[in-house]
Design a protein around this nucleic acid. Sequence first.
DNA 1: TGTTGCGCTATTGTATACAAAGATGTTATT
DNA 2: AATAACATCTTTGTATACAATAGCGCAACA
Lengths: 222, 222
Amino acid sequence: MDAYKIIRKKILLGDFSQGQRLTEEYLCEQLSISRTPIREAIRRLESDGLIMSLKRGVAVRSFTKEDVRQIYDLRALLEGYAASQAAHNRSEKDINKLQATNHAFAEQLAVYDEENKETLESVVNENRAFHEALIASSKNAHVQMLISKVTVLPLVYGQFHWNSVVGMERSKAAHDTLISAIMKKDGERARSAMLEHIYQGRDAVLTHLTKDGKIIEGAEPI
Amino acid sequence: MDAYKIIRKKILLGDFSQGQRLTEEYLCEQLSISRTPIREAIRRLESDGLIMSLKRGVAVRSFTKEDVRQIYDLRALLEGYAASQAAHNRSEKDINKLQATNHAFAEQLAVYDEENKETLESVVNENRAFHEALIASSKNAHVQMLISKVTVLPLVYGQFHWNSVVGMERSKAAHDTLISAIMKKDGERARSAMLEHIYQGRDAVLTHLTKDGKIIEGAEPI
DNA sequence: TGTTGCGCTATTGTATACAAAGATGTTATT
DNA sequence: AATAACATCTTTGTATACAATAGCGCAACA
């Protein structure tokens, strides 16, 4: 795994906390690697929007509640578009893939155990696999790239969404609806199902953020 | 100007042609600079989608006609969204700015002279300024970032759009419509005006590409 | 006490040397 | 003549040294 992926993972998992300054030397120590590849990784992470540049050096980006709202809304816009395009451009193979990944999602759901963190991770991974398969079905590399730019919210937030079996079951049902619409080449229905699906996630996260008192005011970092 | 900006400009202006391989050493010579900053610039350009990585090294990205279509469609989606958000979030200051930039656009249009390339450049610049002001009015930094990712089509293509005074006048009118809708906080109208405006540009470019025999088939690079 | 200037330190920016890994070309063997 | 093996060359990957600069603390002065 290269420096970029390692640092990215550490940010997403919260190993580096929001606002934390990342000096090149510090990263060199952490990864036992020299500054050259670190610097390249930093440029990429900057372009991803995962880190912000200070007057001197960079820090892990912090997000406000308003950021979270805007990012989810853009995900809805883009994934909704991807879903409608998928309905038009999907092949039989794509359908199979979508059904297979959603089946795997359901299976992980069945063995999910609140006490076992790994089972949650599996659920989240299978969900991601489904979304990736759907986006790939759109046959649009550019929308895929854009969506990757708005999936930068540290996983921690995303997982607020996955805090209830009820929510997970609803996601499974939403995936079923999406597959059905895509099979029927009903682009508008696919889009609306995706919008609803993502707004569900957004609202769960925003509710959680407000409730936990972690942040609250729009302008404050979380 | 740093290495990133210089290389980016050279790609957009066509100084480096599509598909051309860019070795680090070659870029070092061109910019009279060492490999370290060159490598960082390459990583950023890669993330921008302006260059593609080969088995070994990178090359200037080439776009197919289908790429052009997809990119314009995504611009329409995102700028349409930005326009509707601008209608809701704009301040009085934003309105003034929009009117000022569109006024400047009209002025450049008035002195435009087919024989003088610089006047065309001025028109294009003022148009960009208007779009930037509009996006800024949306008060959404994330949509701004995403739009910057889909403005990677070498300027050469974009300028196909600016090949007739008629098209330019239509753009001016579209900007007026946009300002009017944004002033009235009519988000849906702003979105639809923006969609139409961008599809006009897309169609002009696609028609040109087909006519010039530069490419034609969807899968071939332009 | 506040503030201005200076010098030191921490950190980033750039160049370059060396290592590693492909690509290419050449020769020997069939 | 075709191909496999090897050597060579090109190009990228990594480490490190040195240069430049921003930030900070300290001291001198008002």
